[in-house]
């Protein structure tokens, strides 16, 4: 059952990326380009997603356990450490250069397969290096 739920969550998430324009790197780059052809659309993605998630998470939090898993697996760290900041900086550079973050990169395996021939395996390599050197 949990696999079905997870698969459906993947479908809905992916539909959200495609419909919202997050899967289009030109739109992402224009959202980040305040001094040129600024396209504020993606601010609306964040507003919609955060509005739904903050209410939904609160409701889910009233349950003692997930519907089809033994327990909630939530991050509980509070400290602002160096890896958090340096990681966010590296991520921002790669995101700004390409317009792809990990979700849209997955969607782009289909919608932009040519570009993903190099970006996707290199992204996985970067993730693996960060894991190994953590």
């Amino acid at each position: 059952m949990r696999l079905v739920i997870s698969f459906i969550a993947g479908l809905v998430f992916s539909a959200g990326l495609v419909v919202s324009g997050m899967a289009n790197p030109a739109k992402v780059v224009n959202f980040l380009d305040f001094s040129g052809s600024w396209d504020p659309s993606l601010a609306f993605v964040m507003i919609g997603a955060i509005a739904v998630a903050s209410i939904g998470f609160r409701l889910v939090g009233e349950n003692s356990k997930p519907f089809s898993a033994p327990r909630f697996d939530l991050p509980n760290r509070k400290d602002i450490d160096r890896p958090l900041i340096s990681g966010a900086i590296f991520f921002g550079v790669g995101w700004g250069l390409s317009g792809y973050c990990p979700g849209p990169a997955l969607v782009s395996l289909v919608l932009s397969s040519q570009a993903m021939l190099s970006l996707f395996p290199m992204m996985l390599l970067g993730m693996w290096i960060a894991k190994k050197t953590a």
Binding site: M1, R2, I5, S6, I8, A9, G10, V12, F13, A15, G16, L17, V18, V19, S20, G21, M22, S41, L42, A43, F44, V45, M46, I47, G48, A49, I50, A51, V52, A53, G56, F57, L59, V60, N63, K65, P66, F67, S68, A69, P70, R71, F72, D73, L74, P75
Partner: peptide
């Protein structure tokens, strides 16, 4: 479109936490 897409993304995150106990 972006607002609606965002609502879908948020809904997926809620579904993942509710069903699987995981952060999306």
């Amino acid at each position: 479109h972006s607002l609606f897409g965002g609502i879908l993304i948020g809904s997926a995150a809620v579904l993942m936490l509710w069903g699987c106990g995981q952060i999306l």
